[in-house]
Design a protein around this nucleic acid. Sequence first.
DNA 1: CGCCAGGTTGTTG
DNA 2: CAACAACATGGC
Length: 241
Amino acid sequence: MKPRALLNKTYALLSGKFGPGNWWPIVKNGRPLYLPEYLTRERTPAEIFEIAVGAILTQNTSWGNVVLAIDNLKRAKVMSRKGISDTPLDTLAEMIKPSGYFNQKAKKLKALIYYIDTGLKGSLSRLREFPPDRARESLLSVWGVGKETADSILLYGLGMPVFVIDAYTRRIFSRMGAVDKDADYDAIRAYFEKHTGRDINLYREFHALVVAQGKDVCKNKPLCDACVLNKICPASGGENR
DNA sequence: CGCCAGGTTGTTG
DNA sequence: CAACAACATGGC
């Protein structure tokens, strides 16, 4: 199957099964909120900040654990540039403990704050003053911010057209025969950006669908019988079945 | 109990 | 430059 047809079909099938994801969630009263308005309005500076914090905390970590950590920060009034800045490293680490790797991630959050203060004059919104590729390279200069984290901030926070790739994307689309199983991050990203329309909300929804599919169906041990892609996926017994 | 989460960095051959 | 180790909690 040609790339454009494969991606279009895959999106349609996953969308039909899972529906809208309305990413990136904001945590309120200990629960993540997924609102349709996130796809139709610009994110506030406070939301962009929370997305950046969440993107760091969720590195190799389940979202449920991240919600616990974010809730701790919010209840302590620490979910802000100043809040994290004013909180001692050890205290911060204690607050984000549920998200795992807490010592390392506390340092990453501090590095993010240092970057916002010294490089962005106090707000991630300043990244809007750069073209996407420049904003990306700026974020990547921060210790603890890698490609997926940077791209999540750009796509979901700032509304820039970068496709987010993660471990699920690689697993699903290598099983589909679309990408090489050890293709590098930017090669997979280029594949998606080249063969889909340059549409922010498509990028957002597509990535959310990939995560849902990866979690529920296309697991380490795939549940091909329950998979809506099984007719077009070689791994389920071949294309056409 | 074992496995695995919406990765990134540092070290080693 | 690729492979591998370190980082760590919580849910199923």
